[in-house]
Design a protein around this nucleic acid. Structure first.
Lengths: 318, 318
DNA sequence: GGTGACCGCGCTCACATGAGCAAAGTATTA
DNA sequence: TAATACTTTGCTCATGTGAGCGCGGTCACC
């Protein structure tokens, strides 16, 4: 611990090599190095603790159960799924891994939800891409926030809800309105529209919700889709926002910032997510660390699917 | 083996997680998963064999003994030192690692050489930088090939021999002539010079040699130092050369190419290296793979210090 | 359908290993 | 210097673990 003797550390290394690479017994090593066999055993434990010997599990489906347990306890979550973030992987690959785990989690969820509220975005697009065919039987998927396709990409907001429903042998109900409108009155008008009101009513009482918080960055999908300008992002940041959930921007306490903007946003309220039996948030990458903390700390989600670095961040936060 | 069942692989993963991360005994795992304890033991062995569980030793001084053994056997070497090539490290860091190992090897060499012939170059410069003070007592270091400083860098050819001697509490004999001269006659004249002849005689009977083969690239030190032009490099490549040893360019069989150039090169002959008790070659990086193969296959060195990727390459070569 | 080859399984048994403990050694303080 | 707290060491013992064996099931080939 305190010694830091290079000579001793080198001995540790020799012992570790003999044991793990040379397949010698601790007794044999002790004989060769003039040590008792118990000393060798302790040195091996020390080498593992010091990280000289690293035992890691390498598998795409591997989950970090220790972190999951810590997260559920720390934030009173129903469940957590933490996948290892490979050092060599970029953000896109990481998102894909996390999305895959989320799809798997959803498929394994028991009792299977009869109605599932879903948001949209890059992460959910990836989740939809990994959902196993036949993951459910006759699920009813409901789009919980607006997202009329102003997006340039072919995978529109409505598409991911459809795909998830399709693979679950079920039906989909879309919310064919913009995510954010320009006038409060427009929102009110749309909401009073019968077809929209019906969807929202449905969306507010789903058995499960699946969404991905958005980071407050200039390349967010809300910016790319044209609902926000770069200036809006700066203004939100100045107002203390750390990101959005189903299009609603929140601060570190999970409270809505900029009420005026929020009143122009179409979709379920944060309260609806808080009330959900399974409210599953999916988030990957450093950009989402802060918004992740906000949603788990304020109970907007009760299930979190993420990568181990985000999990570490959440556990470090006081 | 042949099954490739994803379900079973997932079970393997679960078992591995429980054992290595959950610190459960094989018995407990068997209980939980309705397996016998022996099945669990076999699954763990399988998981390790399949690479799902990876046990690796992480330490700057770590050596790959299995590869060292394979190399010494395959090429009839006296000794081999193979250090792991960290995936994240660049070529410079890798060279430093290998150089450090070489310095250590030299210091541990028993019986300690009374006379040591050294070459020069970027790699040997790194070796000199890592040689421990007091690594020998009264060693006599002799420069084995020409290298009168035409180099732009401050670390001249003679400098590394001096440093190695200095740290070994010994003396140094330099070879103050160019590496390659322009006329055969010049070489003959220089060699007949008493002072040069004496050094060469000394250099030809060293107890140990330490050198690093050079790759045939346009940024080789021989080019940088002005002994060769870029065109010369291309000509040598066309003549079948894979690199140089103490300034002498060789082909894949370890034979000198371009006799005319070789006759203008000052220093010990390849035969002198082949005759040495310890002829230690130090080489790191992909660029030196081919020249490495040439020198170990043709017996120019009998000790090789290198990285694990080079070792892999040498073992793959039929 | 019969027969032999093969494979995976559970088990015995001998060995390897870690937890826990008391003695020896070492640092710390009065 | 002596007393004390703390660490390290070697050991006992219970437990964990892997090699090897025989059984039963499966498959291919006759």
């Amino acid at each position: 611990m305190t010694a830091e003797e290079p000579e001793y550390e080198h001995q540790l290394l020799r012992v570790a090599e003999m044991y793990y690479e040379g397949d010698l017994t601790q007794e044999q090593i002790g004989r060769a190095l003039h040590l008792t066999r118990w000393k060798v055993g302790r040195m091996l434990a020390e080498a593992r603790a010091a990280g000289i010997v690293r035992i890691q599990i390498v598998h795409p489906r591997h989950r970090r159960h220790a972190l999951e347990r810590a997260l559920t306890q720390r934030y009173g979550l129903r469940d957590a799924v933490v996948v290892p973030a490979d050092d060599t992987a970029d953000d896109v690959e990481l998102r894909d891994r996390v999305a895959s785990a989320a799809a798997q989690y959803l498929a394994d969820l028991r009792p299977a939800p009869r109605t599932l509220g879903v948001s949209w975005g890059r992460t959910l697009d990836a989740v939809a891409g990994h959902i196993p065919s036949g993951w459910a039987r006759g699920v009813h998927v409901v789009q919980v926030n607006g997202g009329l396709s102003r997006s340039r990409r072919p995978t529109s907001a409505s598409d991911m809800a459809s795909r998830i429903a399709h693979h679950g042998g079920g039906t989909v109900t879309l919310l064919p309105v913009p995510a954010i409108v320009e006038q409060d009155a427009t929102r009110a008008a749309l909401e009073s529209e019968r077809s929209v009101a019906d969807v929202l009513k449905l969306a507010r009482h789903c058995g499960a919700y699946l969404f991905s918080p958005g980071a407050l960055t200039h390349d967010s999908v809300l910016v790319e889709s044209g609902y926000l300008t770069s200036a809006d992002v700066d203004a939100l940041a100045a107002a203390g926002s750390v990101g959005d959930v189903v299009g609603r921007f929140i601060d570190t306490d999970g409270q809505v910032v900029r009420e005026d903007l929020d009143r122009r946003t179409l979709g379920v309220a944060l309260e609806d997510l808080r009330a959900g039996t399974s409210s599953i948030a999916v988030a990957a990458g450093a950009a989402k660390h802060r918004v992740c903390h906000a949603i788990v700390a304020s109970g907007i989600c009760n299930v979190l699917v993420t990568d181990h670095r985000t999990a570490d961040h959440l556990l470090e936060a006081a």
